[in-house]
Design a protein around this nucleic acid. Structure first.
Lengths: 198, 198
DNA sequence: TTGACAGCATACTCAGTAGTATGTTTGCAT
DNA sequence: ATGCAAACATACTACTGAGTATGCTGTCAA
């Protein structure tokens, strides 16, 4: 992807985050770029596609961060801890994107008319489902071997996933605390996630 | 509150839930009522006030449900379990309202111009903070007496609160399962919440 | 040098939307 | 019966915002 297009995506993520994806206008995004609509519509055919590509990139960020730590030979509780500790910094490092994709979970507009938008939304759902499956598998393994107590796995999965995404709701990036605070936070959330399942 | 006004609020909650609060228009709400804008603007001075009153009612629903089970003499883990088991059915019983208030957490438009809207938003923040304090206190008590392990209380609070609100994201009301499923779900989430803190 | 295309900016169109102004009906007290 | 609000419906206005059509400018290959 070209540098210019990536800048537009970054700006869109920030503006969509602060104003809300629906409330924010293309002109708002352009203003935040110091540009005009022309630049945005040169790279993206519609607002829906722009929004979808922001969400797709958010899902991609998380997936790319967690994938390297996957190891089927690890005990489930250790594996889950690793996944959470990889997830948190990735999410907090690209916070605007994840705040936007969170909005799309709550308020499903679904007014996507064009075929391209529908295709992108399908991609997002697939990415999201694949990411969920990563966690579902490790929880399932943990229940099978007795490391986690057995309970409704869908409920457990969604609860844990939302818990480790909770910082998206309240975290505001400060200047200094970046790495220190993030490692502490990651470990605390990993502790809670594992404890919730045991 | 009059019956007619309450009906408008219900319709607004449902439409705002499905279409998103910003994307949905007053005409959409009116159409869902089988009425016209006149009815809505007779009871509410603006869309912002309508949205704010939906959110306020959502906060009120949860608060009214949990308040009766509060008992400072109960052990913290038991108390928390009771609160969660009161919270879940209340939320799932008025799901549209809570889906709307969830949207306002993620996408803070904050374009409220009128004084009335600002006042209502302040009320919502206050209600929300009071509700959080209910949980913060019991977690704090649990940490003090050793029932819960000591950790960053703000992180723990937000994590637990979001976990018990997770069903708002994924729950779709079926016909039959109402009571049975809800009690099972409540107990599972209560288990996870308590376990996450121990 | 020139054309040709990427990468924008400018200046529109037009559908939809919040809000208003003004009827119209219905219940109800006197 | 009648005045009179409450509780709407109807018919507007003014404006925003997505999308488009077109113009402008640098770059780069031939």
């Amino acid at each position: 992807m070209s540098r210019a297009k990536s800048e537009v995506l970054d700006a869109a993520a920030e503006v969509f985050m602060t104003l809300g994806a629906e409330a924010a206008s293309i002109d708002d995004v352009a203003r935040h770029l110091g540009a005009t609509k022309g630049r945005i519509y040169h790279h993206f055919p519609s607002k829906g596609v722009l929004l979808a590509e922001v969400c797709l990139r958010a899902a991609d960020f998380a997936h790319r961060a967690v994938h390297p730590v996957l190891d089927p030979d690890l005990p489930p509780d250790v594996q889950l801890r690793q996944m959470v500790c990889a997830h948190i910094p990735a999410v907090l490092g690209s916070l605007p994107y994840h705040k936007v994709i969170l909005q799309s979970f709550v308020g499903m507009s679904q007014k996507s008319t064009t075929a391209l938008e529908r295709s992108l939304l399908a991609d997002i759902r697939q990415e999201r489902k694949a990411y969920e499956t990563l966690f579902r598998d490790v929880i399932s393994r943990g229940m099978a071997c007795g490391a986690f107590r057995s309970q409704n796995i869908s409920v457990a999965l969604h609860s844990v996933l939302l818990m480790v995404n909770a910082p998206v709701f309240w975290y505001q990036p400060r200047a200094e605390d970046s790495t220190d605070f993030m490692t502490d936070l990651s470990e605390q959330l990993a502790d809670m996630a594992v404890a919730a399942l045991q």
